[in-house]
C-alpha cells in the first residue's frame, strides 16, 4: 500500500522518505485509527501559532470531510515537492503534475483570498490579528486589489493573481526539499 502510494505521487521520493512520512503520519494520529482529524493537526504547536494555520489545515480536508488518510495526506504534501529538471521537459500534453506552478498557487487554499475583496480582507485579518483596525486593513486590501485588478471588476481573478506573482520564484519559495 505504501509503495503504491509512493509510486503514484512521488516518482522521485525514496522509499525511506515515504516510510519516514508514514511514521510522521502515525505519530500525529493520536486516535490511532489511520486517519488524521483537524484536532491532530492543531496539536502541532508551530502550526497552531501560524496565523494561516487553520487555512493550511483545511487544505488537507476535502469539502465536507473531517478525516484524512495517508493517501490524502501525501496528495496535499505532493504539491510542495520541488520540480526537478527532468520533469520540466516532460510531455506538455500529459496531465498536469501536482507540483506544477499553477497547482502550487491553487493549493494554497487561500485562493478564495484573491477572488474578492471580502476574502482578501478576511485572510488579511487572520494574518494580522487584532493589531490593525478595520479601516486600515480595508484600505490595504483595496490597494492590493487595485494594483492587481486589470479587468476592472474590483476582484482578483486567478489569471490576475498569477500575473502579480509572475516574478516571484514560486517553485522555490513554495517547495520543500528533502534531506538525503
Amino acid at each position: 500500500m505504501l509503495i503504491c502510494v509512493s509510486s503514484f505521487f512521488f516518482s522521485s521520493v525514496s522509499h525511506s522518505q515515504i516510510t519516514r512520512l508514514y511514521s510522521r503520519f502515525t505519530s500525529l494520529d493520536k486516535g490511532e485509527n489511520g486517519t488524521l482529524s483537524r484536532e491532530d493537526f492543531q496539536r502541532i504547536p508551530e502550526l497552531a501559532i501560524n496565523p494561516l494555520g487553520d487555512r493550511i489545515i483545511n487544505a488537507f480536508f476535502p469539502e465536507g470531510e473531517d478525516q484524512v488518510n495517508f493517501r490524502g495526506f501525501m496528495r496535499t504534501l505532493a504539491h510542495f515537492r520541488p520540480i526537478e529538471d527532468n520533469e520540466k521537459s516532460k510531455d506538455q500534453n500529459g496531465p498536469e503534475p501536482l507540483n506544477s506552478r499553477s497547482n502550487k498557487l491553487h493549493c494554497k487554499k487561500c485562493e478564495p483570498s484573491y477572488r474578492s475583496n471580502y476574502f482578501s480582507f478576511f485572510v488579511l485579518r487572520m494574518m494580522v490579528g487584532v493589531n490593525i483596525s478595520d479601516e486600515q486593513l480595508g484600505s490595504i486590501a483595496d490597494r492590493t486589489i487595485q494594483e492587481a485588478d486589470q479587468d476592472g471588476d474590483s476582484a482578483i481573478s486567478f489569471a490576475e493573481f498569477v500575473k502579480v506573482l509572475e516574478k516571484v520564484d514560486v517553485e522555490q519559495k513554495m517547495s520543500i526539499r528533502f534531506l538525503h
Binding site: I44, E46, L52, A148
Partner: peptide, 28 residues
C-alpha cells in the same frame, strides 16, 4: 506594505511543520 506573496511564507512554514516540527518529536 502588504504583498500578496507574503502568504507564501506562512503557507510554506505551515506545511513544513506538518512534515516535521521541533516540538512534538521531542515527546517520542
Amino acid at each position: 506594505e502588504f504583498e500578496l506573496s507574503d502568504i507564501f511564507y506562512f503557507c510554506r512554514k505551515g506545511i513544513e511543520t506538518i512534515m516535521d516540527d521541533e516540538v512534538t518529536k521531542r515527546f517520542s
